[in-house]
């Protein structure tokens, strides 16, 4: 299965350019979207999830095996039948129980036999660790529980395209792991698009990822290759805090970190740096900052 995004652009009426000529090709497996706040991640995901119209461009979903050939922007009903979507922010009906609400979603996703639906609903609630709270009203759920319910609803009906927008926000580390395991289990049959601010998660989970900033795709590829491309080019140095401006003028600083009163800076350089700099092992965060810094000021101090 393959999702092809071709030159997608979108400008909001207030002048904010959310997407600009975004082209990506995604195939089965997990795809991570990285980018700062307001980069256009959610816009892109909502557009794929049929919630929003782009100004131009196209999105196609093809599966030669199952004979899909969907134009996502026009055949919305077709997409919705394959889709599992967890928005970044969403509401629930406060006076209805987790189980009934999930049952309602399952029904709308076409699971008509009630036995089947019941099993499915209970199993999903179990998977997101809400089984014992299944009869509680959604209005009484904490933020994390609501988020887990959101995950459950996105998984109803074996979706072939799963879009999860910052799914782990509000989850404790245990729940986060549990969720990532769940996503990984979904196998190779599915495209999973995941947006997150935790760069490390992309590294461990995703086979492909993209960095978006100001609505543009800055990088697109595999995490390992991305990290590999920076090997030998990252240097770090501990400096006094008051010298940061001096260094900023002289070196392409990609990130800074203040630890116990000491400032550590990381610099990307194709040439060998002396002057107290020591080579460092690159990681995905370096990749992220390297690309973002080309577009915006990432003055972290």
């Amino acid at each position: 299965m393959q999702l092809t995004i071709d030159r997608l652009s979108k400008t909001y009426p207030n002048g904010v350019r959310a997407l600009h000529n975004v082209s990506l090709t995604l195939s089965n497996g997990m795809f991570g979207l990285l980018g700062p706040n307001g980069a256009g991640k959610s816009s892109l995901m909502r557009t794929i999830a049929t919630l929003q119209e782009p100004d131009s461009g196209s999105i196609r979903l093809d599966d030669p095996d199952a004979d899909y050939n969907l134009d996502v922007l026009t055949n919305k009903t077709g997409v919705r039948q394959l889709l599992g979507y967890l928005p970044q922010e969403f509401g629930v009906y406060p006076r209805i129980s987790a189980r009934r609400m999930l049952d309602h979603v399952a029904r709308l996703k076409g699971i008509e036999r009630s036995n089947e639906r019941k099993d499915l609903v209970l199993a999903l609630l179990d998977k997101v660790n809400l089984y014992k709270d299944r009869d509680r009203k959604l209005g009484t759920f904490s933020g994390g529980m609501k988020q887990r319910w959101g995950i459950a609803q996105a998984l109803v009906g074996n979706p072939r395209l799963i879009i999860v927008d910052e799914p782990t926000a509000g989850l404790d580390p245990a729940e986060r792991n549990r969720f990532y395991n769940l996503l990984s289990q979904l196998g190779e049959q599915t495209i999973v698009i995941l947006s997150t601010h935790i760069v490390e998660d992309v590294n461990t989970l995703c086979s492909q990822f993209a960095i978006i900033c100001h609505g543009e795709v800055l990088y697109h590829g595999e995490p390992e290759n991305a990290v590999k491309s920076l090997e030998g080019k990252i240097y770090s140095k501990r400096i006094p805090q008051n010298e940061i401006e001096k260094y900023r003028a002289g070196y392409p600083i990609i990130s800074t970190q203040l630890k116990a009163g000491q400032l550590y800076i990381r610099v990307k350089s194709d040439e060998h740096l002396a002057n107290g700099f020591s080579p460092a092992a690159p990681d995905l965060e370096d990749v992220y900052f390297t690309h973002i810094s080309t577009k915006m000021d990432i003055n972290t101090i």
Binding site: G110, I111, A123, Y131, K132, D133
Partner: peptide, 19 residues
């Protein structure tokens, strides 16, 4: 809400539903 017994279940696997 009263605590509910916890039994582990596996989600049934359905084929893709063509609506």
């Amino acid at each position: 809400a009263k605590p509910l017994e916890h039994t582990r279940t596996q989600p049934p696997h359905h084929p893709f539903i063509n609506l």
